[in-house]
Design a protein around this nucleic acid. Structure first.
Length: 419
DNA sequence: TGAGAGTCAATATA
DNA sequence: TATATTGACTCTCA
């Protein structure tokens, strides 16, 4: 089943959280250049770069949840989206992400337009609260959730939307479930309280950290990572603080997870860490911030999680074993020389899986241990896989042939050839 | 037993 | 000072 969503809204939010749109009052208050938006951004998709043309005769207004928005600004947001996806016709929850770029204009009240910015936002179309798509349509439970990082401030927008479902040549319109203004306001309240997006049930969930009453569900790791990044920035929370208090992990681990979140279904025990992030995001703002002041155990309790499970870390053990009486004693990390690294990388380009004999030859040639060589290839393969998982880029990763192996080894016989 | 996953923590970098 | 990178370690699983 294909699904088209095409909608164009012109929205403005002011400090009192009221709204206007093109078709509703107070239209006359729009600045003269309100519709004069910049050209399509460089990285926008073909869909989103099409010229803004309203396709619905009913423009839905949204519920806004400005977080720490600067009250001196009006924010005009215009977006357009047209996307197709393979939304299932059945399923408890479904969602799709429309990658789009938001055009944002900052308009200072007293000076009219003083700045103009573009920013990225992720948009999620949610089919929610129903056993199937048709019911969702009938019940009007089709909504959109946008998240925009605007000058370091997060703005989350929920709205009922007007989309068009195309199925086997038939066009079915999904009207917003609003009858009048009062209903709109009720719906706003409901939508603005929606939890961060979770989607269909998970096939498996190792290391569950949930109470019995909870149902394990998939988490959109990219979405969670983006939200965490925004939260940390918005509230000036250091990664180290969040990582240690909420996740029971190190700063470096958190940094890596936030920058390169693996898709949920590719995670194993790592799901636990994202589950904790997701749980934290579900808390109200005040709770989120106060949890950070708690001990790790208290924070877990406050979020309905089991006590955190510190990872048995090799690095931690290594350090403890080195000198338990002196916690300040650091074990220096080995660093490859340029030549060592370049050599290893050169070989890696030829084969990601050298034989043990090659490992040993490399170790001898580079005057490092075979374990270090093995670690290099292990880390390189894993980080390559990780990159592919997060970028969907295909790379060649075939086993080495005997002929290739012979060629490489022959080069080491006269090792000057390498560089 | 070896490969992969998850991670730590030292250190490089911004 | 905060974040990103990375060599090494433990645990899990086929």
């Amino acid at each position: 089943m294909g699904m088209h969503g095409k909608y164009v809204d012109y929205l403005q939010v002011d400090p009192s959280n009221t709204y206007i749109n093109k078709y509703g009052p107070p239209q006359e208050e729009l600045p003269d250049d309100f519709l004069d938006f910049p050209d399509s951004p460089k990285e926008s998709s073909p869909e989103s770069s099409t010229k803004t043309t309203p396709t619905s005769d009913v423009l839905d207004f949204s519920s806004w949840e400005p977080v720490d928005s600067d009250s001196s600004f009006h924010m005009n947001i215009v977006y357009e989206s047209e996307a197709e996806t393979d939304l299932p016709t059945h399923g408890v929850l479904s969602s799709m992400t429309i990658n789009q770029q938001f055009y944002v204009k900052k308009t200072k009240i007293e000076k009219n337009l003083i700045a103009e910015e573009r920013c990225f936002g992720d948009s999620h179309l949610n089919i929610d609260g129903s056993s199937d798509l048709e019911n969702a349509i009938q019940n009007g439970n089709v909504s959109q959730q946008d998240m925009v990082n605007f000058g370091g401030k997060s703005i989350i927008q929920h709205q009922q939307i007007d989309v068009e479902v195309v199925e086997q040549g038939n066009s079915v319109r999904i009207p917003p479930n609003y009858d009048d203004q009062e209903n709109q306001l009720d719906s706003m309240k409901t939508l603005s309280k929606q939890k961060p997006k979770r989607v269909k049930k998970s096939r498996q969930a190792p290391q569950k950290d949930l109470h019995d009453s909870e149902v394990e569900e998939e988490i959109d790791t990219k979405d969670v990572a983006m939200r965490i990044v925004n939260e940390l920035k918005t509230h000036h929370i250091p990664q180290k603080t969040f990582a240690e208090r909420i996740l029971c992990r190190s700063q470096g681990t958190l940094s890596d997870l936030l920058r390169k979140p693996k898709p949920w279904n590719m995670l194993k025990s790592g799901q636990e860490t994202f589950r904790r992030m997701h749980k934290w995001l579900q808390q109200p703002l005040t709770a989120r911030l106060s949890i950070l002041d708690m001990s790790t155990e208290e924070a877990a309790e406050a979020q309905g999680l089991l006590p955190p499970t510190p990872v048995p870390s090799g690095a931690r053990k290594r350090r403890m074993n080195s000198d338990e009486s002196d916690p300040a004693a650091k074990v220096a990390r080995f660093v490859f020389t340029t030549h060592q690294k370049q050599t290893l990388q050169s070989v890696y380009k030829i084969t990601q899986r050298p034989t043990r004999e090659m490992h040993q030859k490399l170790a001898d040639y580079l005057e490092i241990s075979i374990e270090t060589v093995e670690n290099f290839f292990m880390n390189a393969r894993r980080r390559d896989r990780h990159r592919q998982a997060t970028t969907q880029v295909e790379t060649i990763n075939g086993p080495i042939t005997h002929q290739q192996e012979a060629e490489i080894l022959s080069e080491y016989e006269s090792d000057d050839n390498f560089y």
